[in-house]
Design a protein around this nucleic acid. Structure first.
Lengths: 337, 337
DNA sequence: CTCAGGCGTTAAAACGTTTCAACATCGAGG
DNA sequence: CCTCGATGTTGAAACGTTTTAACGCCTGAG
């Protein structure tokens, strides 16, 4: 339980100094092959495991990146994380994932801990705007899927206003004039932006603002989509929207499920557009029209920005990608009866 | 960039000794309110961030648990992770997620790093049996969703043999006599166990062993399910199985997608059973019959075992849960033409 | 007025590495 | 034979905390 065999035990056992052991660990080429073997044997024999705390304390650098994710259960974020990890790995760094689960408190705790750990850098998709007061505390932070408002950080985002516009324009082109947007909470920047895009689309088409109603949900999870579905079905058919634009695919899938469960047809009774185009969107009950974001690339780029943060004359950059509408059955053109 | 303000800077600024600052940080109650305020003010003013490496080096304990997950993109594991995190959080620990992505090499790297970090404990769903040579290296390790073969670790598992048996028995009861099991690689213990259960079910029913064919896939991801679907459709209808039992829900969803895409109907042309009962299973093109595992509980229990590992007279325990079949449309009884 | 005891604070010794300048050793070049 | 540079190795000083035992001060009891 407490082996606690240190570098000096190894040194003694191999008949060298601790400096030599350290060299074997960090600059194997600088030590004579014979000695190196001897040291390695001693390490093996004693079951020595290097103490990273001590190493980091002295050496000053860490070998890990962390990504504080908004919702680990959302495949969108795990896809982004894959991009991050690929880039991190190329730079010889490991990636720790932390799940804030949309909870500002947890987020703060994780950030605090990561700062204390002196990780090489932190990627974060923040819970809300105010949590983005990520005061400069020595550890570089890059915002993912969110545009940095102050100039204090790099950020990588996707144009959510455009995404919302694409989605709702598509619905309008398909003849819908009563459209619901389902998502929330509004404290999430993405939701606000996507809604803004939706409003813009309605205006562009010359429709009255009432053509779009906003149904706020507590989160962007499947259950909320189901709940919204029930609310929708409760409406008299004359006032019920004929199309829904969902804040993300989870909500859309929940909505879909609730519709078929209650005997309504998609897209005939309700057309549905999701957001993110996660892998499950295409496999849904009715394959889901969705706004695709370059997920892996988002993560990869974010990691690269983070790694560039140490360069001498660094200036914070803000990268913005374009989303893309992927049309599937859930918005197939409405059959006229 | 390099503030590097330490505890002694704070001490000096507040006119106390560093020990007092340390006390404010760790035992606030022991220091007089007035001094405490002064110190806190100094901390705030200087933007001091405690160095966790130094703390851990001296104090010996860490405040984090890690879960090395087999596939972060599989919602099953993120659900397990939620259970883990809940339990960890109750014990005042943070959780770092690491994704081995079914790669033995990555898994080894993460384990090595975590050992070096001296985390409080490691949870792992190992890639394969040999990787489970998780030599005792001082940090407690608990196996998740896998039974520990040697007595060296605690483990929390679900009875996969029973799960396979439940699934295939259900198919047989529905009249199927040509059944495919789709999953892999066989190096994964779960796949082997589920297959064993399937074989058992066939034997129990008095069917010949040929009633079950095994289609091995390279991984348990959606794409593999799609690929398997294409292979199946390529078979002449007379030899094509009438039911498929998939190694997990991702594969099942891929299979489903491939079926509908190729114009085959589920369950009429092919009944499908998945495994895990992830949230998306119920929202699939055809709601998926699946074998449900107690996901959160799995994680929660694993974390509890891990935390109990430090008790003086600890004996390794092996908890095993029972899976449960959830029947949905994808195996609705075959219509006789 | 003295003394015991509680309270708040502190000096200094760890913790296990990395790193740096210095130190042997040796073969080659002058 | 001396010097020089290259090659390997080392002693000791950090790194920034926590912790322990001791210390001074104050209060209330005797």
């Amino acid at each position: 339980m407490k082996p606690s065999v240190g570098i000096r035990d190894v040194a003694q056992h191999a008949g060298v100094s601790n400096a030599t052991v350290s060299n074997v660990l960090n600059r194997p080429d600088v030590v004579a092959p014979a000695t190196r073997q001897r040291v390695l044997a001693a390490i093996e024999e004693l079951g020595f495991v290097r103490n990273e705390s001590a190493r980091q304390l002295r050496a000053g650098r860490s070998r890990v990146l962390a990504y504080v994710v908004l919702d680990a259960a959302n495949p969108f974020f795990t896809d982004v994380a894959r991009g991050v990890e690929d880039a991190a790995r190329e730079a010889g760094l490991a990636l720790f994932l932390c799940n804030s689960a949309s909870d500002g408190g947890r987020e703060r705790e994780y950030l605090e801990l990561l700062h204390e750990q002196r990780v090489e850098g932190i990627l974060i998709t923040p819970v809300d705007a105010e949590s983005a007061q990520l005061a400069e505390r020595g550890t570089p932070v890059v915002l993912v899927d969110r545009e940095a408002t102050d100039g204090a950080h790099c950020s990588v985002a996707v144009d959510d206003v455009l995404g919302g516009e694409l989605a709702v324009t598509h619905l309008i082109e398909n003849g819908h004039t009563r459209i619901a947007m389902i998502g929330g909470p509004l404290s999430i920047q993405q939701v606000r932006d996507r809604r803004e895009g939706a409003v813009k689309a309605v205006a562009n088409a010359g429709l009255p603002p009432e053509a779009l109603t906003f149904l706020e949900t507590k989160s962007l999870q499947v259950a909320e989509g189901r709940g919204a579905g029930e609310r929708l079905v409760g409406l008299p058919a004359s006032r019920r929207p004929t199309a829904a634009f969902c804040g993300n695919d989870l909500v859309a899938l929940g909505l879909l499920q609730s519709m078929t469960q209650q005997g309504l047809r998609v897209p005939d009774d309700l057309a549905v557009v999701g957001y993110d185009d996660i892998e499950f969107a295409a496999a849904a009950a009715v394959p889901l029209t969705s706004v695709r974001q370059p997920r892996e690339q988002l993560g990869r780029t974010a990691a690269q920005l983070l790694l560039a943060e140490n360069e001498p004359d660094h200036e914070h950059r803000h990268v913005k990608f374009q989303p893309e509408l992927v049309v599937r059955a859930s918005t197939a053109v409405k059959r006229r009866n």
